[in-house]
Computed example of a mutant assay.
Amino acid sequence: MADLWSIGRGKNSFSAKGVIASDLTHKVTVTNASAKISYADKVRKPEQPVIEYSELPEPGFRGGYPTIKLPKKAYERGLEYCKFSLIGRLDMQGITMEEMRARVAQQWALSESFIITPLAKGFLHLKFENGEDYQKVWTRGPWKFGNELLQLQKWEKNFRPGNQKRTNALVWIRLPNLPMECWDKEALLSIGRGVGHPMKVDDTSINKQYGYYANILVDVDLTKPIPDQILVSTEDYEFWQDVVVTKIQKFCNHCKIVGHSVTECRKLKGVLDKGKDPIVDNTPEDQTEKATKNTKRNKGKK
């Protein structure tokens, strides 16, 4: 059974853990804080149209397999349910589901309740009650939970988690030999923006306790090369800043997904076994310590 919950605001909030979507009958609004609402009231099933077995579509056959065309009204009800929907993705590393629920309610503070349905491969279906709440979540990000960035995309018809490819990962980058006047948190995050989406700066760097290099956690797209240098400009001068990647997750350039390397790719092995040419681009598989190679001359100017 899917772990699904609906979240409201303040005293009007209602959590329905472990209830399938069809069992959520209505939004519970608590007008009296001392009033008790039974579990049966929370999950009472809504009135559903009576569906006769004889009215269900007759299956056809194609290539020896049964085929079914969904009833038009049933499909339209499904589209209506998804009208104000987004697709999110979180690895849920370093944060529990309960912690995420609490932070979602606090950060978003929407006008009406909404439903989050966990899907496969870390994806989430986010269903909102109105366009205003939908736009607020979509446009006012990024939203961070723990050390993770909630990756959002607009819901589309026929979205299936099993067909999606994960190409983003969190990596720590080091900025060695960085001028001390550039160690301000906003300045460090700005430099990190040149690599990907900066998530945080470690406390050691913020407090300037260790001056050999600054550490920044960045969300990067591994289908694109990570730059080994960034041209940084200030009001007085500009300079080339080296970028060192300390550790990176395995990424397969054949499958275009995070989780395994090309040498571990079962799909690639199957292609080679069949005598076909593999589809592998020239994107470096392991960019660790890339900044230590091919270092350009620093072009700092005062």
Rank of each mutant, 00 (worst) to 15 (best):
D3W: 10
L4Q: 06
L4F: 08
W5C: 12
G8H: 03
G10A: 09
N12D: 07
K17D: 09
D23C: 11
K27Y: 05
V28K: 15
V30D: 02
T31F: 07
S34W: 10
A35Y: 10
A35C: 04
Y39E: 13
A40M: 10
E47A: 13
Q48I: 06
Y53R: 09
G63L: 09
G64A: 02
P66C: 01
I68H: 05
E76C: 06
E80H: 05
Y81G: 03
C82L: 14
L86S: 11
T96V: 02
T96P: 00
A102N: 12
Q106R: 14
L110K: 05
T117W: 00
H125V: 05
L126S: 01
G131N: 02
D133S: 05
D133Q: 01
R140K: 14
P142G: 00
K144A: 05
L152S: 00
Q153M: 14
N163E: 13
K165S: 12
T167V: 14
N168A: 11
V171T: 09
I173W: 02
K185H: 11
K185T: 15
S190E: 15
P198C: 06
K200Y: 13
Q209N: 10
Y212P: 00
L217C: 07
L217A: 11
L222C: 10
L222V: 10
P227D: 01
V232D: 04
T234H: 04
D236H: 12
D236T: 14
Y237D: 13
E238N: 15
F239Q: 05
Q241V: 02
K247V: 04
K247P: 00
I248G: 08
F251K: 06
F251V: 06
F251G: 12
H254D: 03
G259M: 06
S261A: 15
V271L: 11
V271R: 01
G275R: 08
G275C: 08
I279Q: 15
V280G: 00
D281L: 00
T283W: 01
P284S: 05
Q287C: 00
Q287G: 03
Q287E: 03
E289V: 07
A291K: 14
T292E: 05
N298I: 06
G300Q: 12
